[in-house]
Nucleic acid binder design. Structure first.
Lengths: 238, 238
DNA sequence: GTCTATACCACGATAGAC
DNA sequence: GTCTATCGTGGTATAGAC
């Protein structure tokens, strides 16, 4: 997704007023994070970037491709780091049973690092990502599934070793639940207000949030496999 | 949100080709579910409903209000049923400690019932709802927080009794995680494919899904409160 | 190759005729 | 209540300047 544009020959790129393409990417990231994909117009975007309207079409083709480029720039390094951390955990285990907590943390930490790094988009980027997860647009879903395929595959194998009581199928569902709680949590800083009474004292603190999320997810992952002993019944109340 | 339109005088409403307003609502529900809010144009919507473009503006004011009306029609009864079921659970407990499972099931069952009732929108409505949860548009967030306020408040009190080891604050977060996993799961029938290897054998089965989701959520809710013994550390891999 | 001006069609919304 | 006509703005496409 990088570019099909031919590389600059020997021209040095001015750092202060960068490459047109980079200027578009930066402005797009900021505006998409703030207003979402649909609510961000190319006209306001190009104005903010100080480039011509048609420049987006020239460099990226469509607004959708631009959106993917914005995501890729942050997402690809994050998932690569997740893979690297996982390999570290596996190496450290030296063949012994993998720790479920450690595998999960390897998955969460790169997200936390991004949340703290304003230069890589910070919390707002994660919110943008969380929203993208639930987006109905086919182009977003296909794009994300491609971006995540490798990482998810590796983590699934690791969790299978860490949680031997789960079948492959069951684990697939649980990872789905984990990603749901994670992306929703990251995306929903505002939605928290749904549950009112969120004390003003407790400001949004990423580290604290993940420290709360992690025990919840670990307990869920470790829960015994599907017990059909306790069946859901469609009782009508009263 | 019902209507500010003056009531029909004594005119009987034809059931087969219903009320213009109802025709719009039905078409809107179907199209919003299929394509999402932004991707559904009023022109295609009114064509499908067999009404004039301006009819939406006349009956609902804006596309946003129409969207809220579509959601309210299903959401309000669902949340009322959740409240009714919860009261049944509380009555049954007779002052004894509440069962966390039973409270959770009271919350999940009305959703499952909608998923199975094609006449009330079925699975697609829940997907629409799940997406709405993550939507950045302020009008959607404000609307949902109003729709959910009462139900969430009552359930929070119930869970506090069922899970006495959790502080109010901690429970708020856990309910947030629960709603995240739930709405993401409901919304993401397609996103499941992110995790590949979802056997074609296992078709989408709502009941089975909730039977898998429930143990995960119960375990997460019951997990011990925030253990700062095991701190997240920003170790770099390797 | 890179950028700009401009034209195009679809969208949501609204005013006013009937 | 319903319709048509029309407005401003959206994403996109292209011809031509540098």
């Amino acid at each position: 997704m990088a570019a099909s544009r031919p590389a600059r020959k020997g021209v040095a790129i001015d750092a202060t007023s960068a490459d047109t393409k980079t200027r578009i990417l930066d402005a797009a990231e900021s505006l998409f994070m703030e207003h979402g994909f649909e609510a961000t117009s190319l006209r306001s975007l190009t104005t903010a970037a100080g480039v011509n309207l048609a420049a987006v079409n020239y460099h990226f083709g469509t607004k959708e491709v631009l959106f993917q480029a914005v995501l890729t720039r942050r997402l690809d390094p994050m998932n690569q780091e997740r893979i690297k951390l996982l390999k570290g955990v596996e190496r450290e285990a030296q063949g012994r049973a993998l720790s479920c907590e450690k595998v999960l943390f390897a998955m969460l930490i790169p997200a936390l690092k991004i949340a703290r790094d304003e230069k890589r988009g910070g919390k707002n980027f994660l919110r943008l990502l969380g929203r993208a997860y639930a987006d109905p647009a086919p182009f977003i879903r296909h794009f994300l599934s491609g971006q995540y395929a490798e990482m998810i595959g590796l983590y699934k194998e690791a969790f299978l070793k860490a949680l031997p009581h789960l079948s492959r199928q069951e684990l697939t569902w649980r990872l789905h639940f984990v990603m749901g709680a994670l992306s929703y949590t990251l995306a929903g800083t505002d939605a928290v207000k749904l549950f009112a009474q969120m004390t003003a004292v407790e400001k949004y603190d990423d580290e604290l949030l993940l420290q709360r999320l992690a025990p919840f997810l670990v307990a869920g992952l470790k829960a015994p496999a599907l017990a059909d002993s306790r069946k859901l019944e469609l009782v009508s109340g009263d």
